[in-house]
């Protein structure tokens, strides 16, 4: 029971991170119907920017943790969104309206480029970081001394995710931009005729997705303390799995899917083997697509003849 509770906490934390990345996939898929293959790399860049920000802050002598965290968050979101914007502008926008394989290949190319770009600039080695936020509560203790702990970091990650999700939902549902986005999702040509700036809306979608991925990158940096240039691929595939599991195009679905994947991974590692935890995630993807292609919260799609 205690062990279970611990895995639940770990799984939720992990799931929050996957969920944030998954939102980027689901929004882009919703609006232009493509898998943004480079999104995992955007997340990796977010992680690197937050490490760099942390080191710069350390060099400048800013060590008060809340301030450091806030600055890391802001800088990671800012710089990473510029990457998200640029990727869309360079690699996807010129290909809008061409056959569906072209943007996907372009995205794979972009993903390979960004991975190697970071590798060339920042080195291939794993970047270790000392723990920034340490300590936590011990929730309960088992007779044999096993302690269920809930670290401050985990609380931070979950709270931040909830806050971002709330803000984000408000953004999509209440603002002009959100409305433009939903309109473009339905029909880009018509939205354009009605005065929505379609290019700008799509750009902003990428910016928002990148900003959320940056937050996820920063969380991972804090949580695991090590990053390298290759973390984007696996996280990207798993987050995409989460988006599909939740029902692609659906924002709450992406978050729910992220949580599911996080929990599955945590429990699988805890009760079975760590080696095959990725196989578990991929198998879930395959099973969901076969038996419920619309995902948990997706709308059913009738084959139009």
């Amino acid at each position: 029971m205690e062990y279970f509770l611990q895995q639940l906490i770990n799984g939720l934390t992990l799931g929050a991170i996957y969920g944030l990345i998954a939102i980027g996939y689901t929004m882009v898929y919703g609006i232009i119907g493509m898998i943004n293959f480079a999104h995992g790399e955007i997340y990796m860049i977010g992680a690197f920017v937050s490490v760099i920000t942390f080191l710069v802050l350390g060099a400048l002598g800013i060590t008060w943790v809340p301030l450091a965290l806030a600055l890391m968050l802001i800088f990671a979101m800012l710089f990473t969104s510029v990457y998200g914007w640029t990727v869309e502008r360079i690699a996807y926008r010129p290909l809008r309206g061409s056959q569906r394989l072209a943007p996907l290949i372009s995205a794979i190319g972009m993903s390979i480029f960004l991975q190697n770009y970071v590798q060339v600039l920042q080195g291939a080695r794993v970047k270790p970081l000392p723990p920034i936020v340490s300590g936590g509560f011990s929730v309960m203790e088992r007779a044999d001394g096993f302690v269920v702990s809930l670290s401050y970091l985990q609380i931070f990650i979950i709270l931040l995710t909830v806050a971002l999700m709330y803000g984000f939902t408000q953004l999509i549902q209440r603002t002009e931009l959100g409305r433009a986005q939903r309109a473009c999702e339905q029909d880009k040509v018509m939205a354009g005729l009605l005065g929505v700036n379609v290019d700008r809306t799509i750009s902003l979608t990428f910016v928002m997705g990148a900003a959320l991925a940056a937050v996820a990158g920063m969380m991972v940096t804090l949580y695991y303390g090590v990053i390298d240039f290759y973390i984007g691929f696996l996280a990207g595939v798993k987050a995409f799995t989460a988006a599909v599991l939740g029902g692609i195009g659906s924002l709450p679905g992406a978050m729910l899917g992220g949580l599911c994947i996080g929990l599955i991974e945590a429990f699988w590692s805890a009760y079975f083997t760590t080696e095959y935890k990725d196989v578990a995630a991929f198998s879930i993807l395959v099973l969901v697509l076969i038996f419920r292609p619309t995902g948990l919260l997706g709308r059913p799609e009738i084959e139009k003849v």
Binding site: M34, V237, V244, Y276, D278, L285, V286, L289, I290
Partner: peptide, 27 residues
Amino acid sequence: PVLRLRGDYFAIVTLGFGEIIRIVLLN
């Protein structure tokens, strides 16, 4: 099991299978 999936889904599932086989070989 996957051939009736639509284009992009098919792509991502084949990617998943590729990775599953690699992970199994690795472990």
